[in-house]
Amino acid sequence: MLELRLVQGSLLKKVLESIKELVTDANFDCSSTGFSLQAMDSSHVALVALLLRSEGFEHYRCDRNMSMGMNLNNMAKMLKCAGNDDIITIKADDGGDTVTFMFESPTQDKISDFEMKLMDIDSEHLGIPEAEYHAIVKMPSSEFARICRDLSSIGDTVVISVTKEGVKFSTKGDIGSANIVCRQNTSVDKPEEATVIDMNEPVSLTFALRYMNSFTKATPLSNTVSISLSNELPVVVEYKIAEMGYVRFYLAPKIEE
């Protein structure tokens, strides 16, 4: 038996909106730690890792570890039917082939339940080693989204370079080229507006903008984003989910042939 009650149901709606473009079907894993997911895109270039810790739920009952295969588009369709202020409860029976999403309006005067069929998915879990990154950039998530959107109108790839001068996003295309440099800026009024660059070694990596733009669908989840870079390693783009966990996107770099 599984029963997870999330008072801030809008978080789950936002999570689905942030990952459904990248991944079609995925297994949600439920354990005493929390509700999690790890899935790659169909080309095995990008990966999403989601964690919603059990402590973040108002009620969290998971009698035994469960893996539930869901089509994310269908799940998003159902969650769209929940109001932004609704409380969402996820329910499933052990060994069942359905999951139920229950939505309660804040005043308890409307209660809906939506039952969705589960599916069998061959999961391909990757072991992601803990890594020391050469550079970690923390910046406003809206700024990062803006940069990715702007650069994708010029080129297909972005070179992200971190030096002690700042972080540079560059692209080239048929019509020309563009460079956007963000300097460390910690003297802003609000901490979420700061750009903080934590660099051990200079790093420069090339990535497909198409994926970066897809990751920025998670912008509504967090005011800030952190971008962890190491030469010759996939980048990690992380959106923290307040008091609950995170959505992390991993993207393999483009490498010179």
Binding site: L126, P129, A252, K254, I255, E257
Partner: peptide, 14 residues
């Protein structure tokens, strides 16, 4: 030209 690498080049299958 740059070639798109795959995640499997960096991470191992569990």
């Amino acid at each position: 030209a740059n070639k798109q690498s795959k995640l499997s080049a960096f991470f191992t299958m569990k």
